[in-house]
Design a protein around this nucleic acid. Sequence first.
DNA 1: ACACGAAGTTCACGATGTCAACATTGCTGA
DNA 2: TCAGCAATGTTGACATCGTGAACTTCGTGT
Lengths: 218, 218
Amino acid sequence: MTVPGASPPSPYHHGNLRHALVRAGTELARNGGPSAIVLREAARRVGVSPNAAYRHFSALPDLIEAVALEALAMLARSMEAELAQLSPTGDDRRDAVAYLGAVGRGYVHFALNEPGLFATAFTSPKTSHGGAGQRDQRGQGDAGRSASELLEDALDAMLAAGVLAPADRATAATNAWAAVHGLSQLLLGPMGGLPPAEREALIDASLELVGRGLIIRG
Amino acid sequence: MTVPGASPPSPYHHGNLRHALVRAGTELARNGGPSAIVLREAARRVGVSPNAAYRHFSALPDLIEAVALEALAMLARSMEAELAQLSPTGDDRRDAVAYLGAVGRGYVHFALNEPGLFATAFTSPKTSHGGAGQRDQRGQGDAGRSASELLEDALDAMLAAGVLAPADRATAATNAWAAVHGLSQLLLGPMGGLPPAEREALIDASLELVGRGLIIRG
DNA sequence: ACACGAAGTTCACGATGTCAACATTGCTGA
DNA sequence: TCAGCAATGTTGACATCGTGAACTTCGTGT
């Protein structure tokens, strides 16, 4: 019987080298961040010559970009996981806010659990130095929604439930994203080594502040 | 006439190699970010052999760290510049809030004007991958205050003026920092290429949200 | 006057990204 | 069916990088 995923034993023609290299690169990035993604090492782990990679990536930054996309997908999955353990109360207003909170928590938790991949996900393409770029809409989770789409969904729900002022809708995504992204960055960097308890408290406080800023006063 | 800053013509013994290397490294980081800091290139620009650097830095990460500190100082100076063009109204409450706004604006503007240095400033020491680390309290501006100290000053002023609830004081710094840091990151990355007008508007909206979240309701 | 230590230099090595030329494979059209 | 072709890997080579070891210069204190 032929196993569906297994490639027939051909020393040449790996089967799906591209995926294998991305996986290896992801593993490298997991500890060590984007700068730990080393083309030769990835090839070595896959058991292929270094230059074979050039059949699938124009150069190193291309591999890194592919890994970043993979990381982005994992981010989305982390959010989905948090959303999954949400139990709707039936109160649309409350549920919408809870939705947003779950999205935020999924984001921060991914950053904390996978610092290397998180850093890689937001290492901008080419030139590597935080420059501009919009890889954006790919990197989807299991439900086929990207991280940014999940956030937009939450905000739409809030708008529909009437807890978000229409005037704020436009900037809400950026503001919420910024708050959560910045928090993650700080928790990983300058405020690393914070005891988990305090950390969780800080996350909650931060998410609450986002809420306070966004939610219609009443 | 001997120029004050010029070192006497000694081919050996550069005079202040360390500073020179940091300056060269800073220039490299300015375009290209932390990964563009190349020890050999820095030495080359200073006109010295690569290994001379090892008399002043234990290894590459040490140089990068020094450049990061320099970048942090520039960040503080950017904030100070924004603060300088503030004209107090005499209304403590209003002034305190304006102070916080200026700090935030200085932060974001530095990030936008010097993306490479900004990225370098927040590249954590060693291992390079966003891990933990607290270089923190150095990297001061011209007034001798670090970026984080300037932020704390603003919050203290708000507390004194009664626009910040004492209960919020503890988490305020992190929240404000996170919002501004995240915004910078987004503006540089996924939302790069945003027309300057919209960008400024977004910055204002974001800073206002921070205010809304922090300022005592009334 | 002179040894000594700090600051630079040269030589050398292993690793990396990438180019050019060559080898192997599997599919495809006559 | 089978020759040939494009895709996929391989080998060899090169410039560059970070870094260790040994040597050289030079200002200084005794």
